[in-house]
Design a protein around this nucleic acid. Sequence first.
DNA 1: TGTACATCAGTGAACGCGCGTTCACTGATGTAC
DNA 2: TGTACATCAGTGAACGCGCGTTCACTGATGTAC
Lengths: 217, 217
Amino acid sequence: MKLNNVPESLPPARSTYRHGDLRRALLDAGIELARDGGPDAVVLREATRRAGVVPNAAYRHFGSRQALLWAVREAALAAAAGAMEKELAVLPCDQPPADFARAQVRAIGTAYLRFAQAEPGLFRTAFVVSAEGDGQLGPAKAGASGLDPFQLLGKAIDRLVDAGVLDAARRPNAEYLAWSSVHGLALLIIDGPLRAMPPADLHALGQRLIDMVERGL
Amino acid sequence: MKLNNVPESLPPARSTYRHGDLRRALLDAGIELARDGGPDAVVLREATRRAGVVPNAAYRHFGSRQALLWAVREAALAAAAGAMEKELAVLPCDQPPADFARAQVRAIGTAYLRFAQAEPGLFRTAFVVSAEGDGQLGPAKAGASGLDPFQLLGKAIDRLVDAGVLDAARRPNAEYLAWSSVHGLALLIIDGPLRAMPPADLHALGQRLIDMVERGL
DNA sequence: TGTACATCAGTGAACGCGCGTTCACTGATGTAC
DNA sequence: TGTACATCAGTGAACGCGCGTTCACTGATGTAC
């Protein structure tokens, strides 16, 4: 398999001196790293390696490792938002407003859980801000609708109020209650004691959790 | 301030060749590190430094860094269990069984949230198993009652069934639903978007969450 | 259309860091006689 | 009660690792004349 003189499994050596779009390549590599190992796996040197470039070349495009990590996180948030929008898009519109509003909230919760299971690394990169992140997290990036995952949830809960399903007095901070439940379950699943549960059971448990939130909110 | 010739802020140099109880000292240092920085901060070299001992001395007592981390984690779990037991102990017993059972579940949830806020580093060490932990986590260590936090929750939910508050059909896996909610909120608080919320509001939100779970279970 | 030049993306080499872990050692302790 | 000795807790020195980051550079590109 040694058709050329570069070690296999390395990206093909560039023929050009300039890369073309190194920023994009580094970001893609970073996303791949996050996908496989979560935020801690997003490492400058490995990203440059995958892009077929010398380590310090990254500094033309990202001021620091943190800057790259933030960019990856934005991509992860956008991916999560996209997953939610996709789940919302398939909902039938021809139903009573109350049912529709409820279905939207359920869809968002379901999408959150599905995303966590399908892409645990990206999920952790998007939503498990490590302690050193502090207050530095900028405005989260959006899906196609221009809304980030948290805003999507907020809007869905607003619609619950509009449809008369949720008492307006209970509205304030309700998104945090819903988010907590679904976020906690996601974590128990992706690296907690629920790791070993079969996917079908996990889905059923997720739906029970969402039932619980719907009833309890 | 240089009364002796050792750098300040270092533990006083031992006069004896043997340490006395190095294992304990390393464990204590590890717990302190976890308290300040979570599981990732539990670092062999720093623990030995704090114990006033050369780095490799640790290997007389712990086979690896992981072994120390597990010991610290057990201590953190025991601390969490202890906090729950304390919260349970102050509950008045002279109330209807249904109310009592409910109060016990609430007490456990409240203690969980309080523990997360009071000791975020230990909380993360106990309950946020990093992905590389895999299946290696042994049986969790216990509080005074001999039960770990999860078992305490399980028993409390059993009592909910016994008291007729929770339908037996809903019992299976119910602890995971409750745990998810409270676990998620704890994480949103200790290193999520709720970091900045005033403690009083956080407590209120926690109680609303527990209300939600109680109603929705 | 052709040439001089400024720009700046990627190179090459090196830095200091702290980590986990291994090796052969030394010297205080407690036990057997 | 005193001495020889085995045990094994802690020492000293070193290893290799991968990381983020800085420096002075080089050479392809695109623009101005």
